[in-house]
Design a protein around this nucleic acid. Sequence first.
RNA 1: GGAGAGGUGGCUGAGUGGUCGAAAGCGGCGGUUUGCUAAACCGUUAUACUGGUUAAUUCCGGUAUCAAGGGUUCGAAUCCCUUCCUCUCCGCCA
Length: 426
Amino acid sequence: MLDIKLIAADAEEIKKIISQRDPSYGAMIDQAAVLNAEYKKILARAEELRSKRNELSKHVGVLRRDKPAEAEKIMAEVTDMKNEMAEKETSLEEFKKKIENLLLNIPNLPHTTVPAGKNETENKEVRRVGAVPNFNFKPLDHHAVGEKLGILDFETAATLSGSRFSLLRGDGAKLERALINYMLDMHAKNGYTEIAPPAVVNENILVGTGQLPKFREDMYALEGEPKQFLISTAEIPLTNLNRGKILPAESLPLKYVACTPCFRKESGAYGKDTRGLIRNHQFDKVELVMISDRQKSFECLEIMTANAEAVLSGLGLAYRTVLLCTGDMGFSSAKTYDIEVWMPSENKYREISSCSDCTDFQARRMNLRCKTENGKPEFVHTLNGSGVAVGRTLAAILENCQTSDGSVLVPPALVPYFGKDKITSK
RNA sequence: GGAGAGGUGGCUGAGUGGUCGAAAGCGGCGGUUUGCUAAACCGUUAUACUGGUUAAUUCCGGUAUCAAGGGUUCGAAUCCCUUCCUCUCCGCCA
């Protein structure tokens, strides 16, 4: 959520910046500015009335004993004010709600270092790491590799749950477990505290991180009241972990890591990546979250991105890191790096991690602050990044480490976790 | 699921209709004392919004906030209703 004060101070400037994402947001900024001006007028009058009422009522107690007639007069006077007071109160509520609804649907301001652009074609490659493998045979895609080995079974998954679900069997299931432990151990060494959070959260938690109100159709909702949802990423519980608190400055940055299942409806992705592990309704992801003060957050973003990259380089997978342009960034983010892993079957890099600095956008929504040097609380900056998507990593290993005889060589870093260095069919 | 207790400031904990934004203690901050440390003593100590003022989040006002929402009243932390949450005991259960 943007600070309404920023909009009130210079709506034109904010419009200019936000329009780099999408020009249609400009009108919403204008509306917010107009509503806010109106709101303040009403607020002034409402507070004047309340002030008068408080002043009058203060003396009634004493007057009642000493001068009952005067007390009666004052009581009547206050009663007369009630209509206007009630009217102002309701209209205040209405304006507040309208403004908040607008603000909740406006995305974060892109950071000045983010390139302007409409879509992913205007993203900027920052670096390319690792050698793309050379095959002296035609590499199979990961579902073919996995199904031949009997470790991936999409047919059974479909029977159980429909399309876009996966089932891992035997060495496949074990390899996923090995990957998770490898990732969690690495991040723990880098100072992240491991968390095992709930995968079900309340509605306001999703407002905090920005999934609601705008992206309700992407979320799995549970039956019943109060409304609860399955998380689409561990970013949600991790970032909300301290919501409403004032954190001591010296505790920052807070660093959390969790591996959770993630549930996504993928309703806008008809026909995209319909086979395999790339885009499913349920997948495991290791997620990193940092809570930083506002001075250091962009440094933290570099560190977090490096921490995520280390997972891939540790596995010997080739990847590149891309700085997203204004038009391709997520709703809450001010600056995002995507990490893309090489997928031989597609002959291109595919997203496997996304690391974002959300500045104070989420912190304001969840009222998460820290004490500053002068003792005043201020909103923190929140960051999140995949460290990394487990299913996609599994897919990348199957593709990049396949051999001509159909077996898969397990990356050396995983061998201690997996127990052997090769997956062969039974 | 059944029975009971309770939710007050950074924390502990008073306060059952009228100078209560809220006693007291702890903690924090500033200071005095002091070879050093400790102790003692004095002072100070919420947040948001808002009007004016300022170099300033400077200063002076106002409003709101005692789990959340609604109601009663001239006036609510205090009374009533609803919801949420926490704790204890019993039952059930991986």
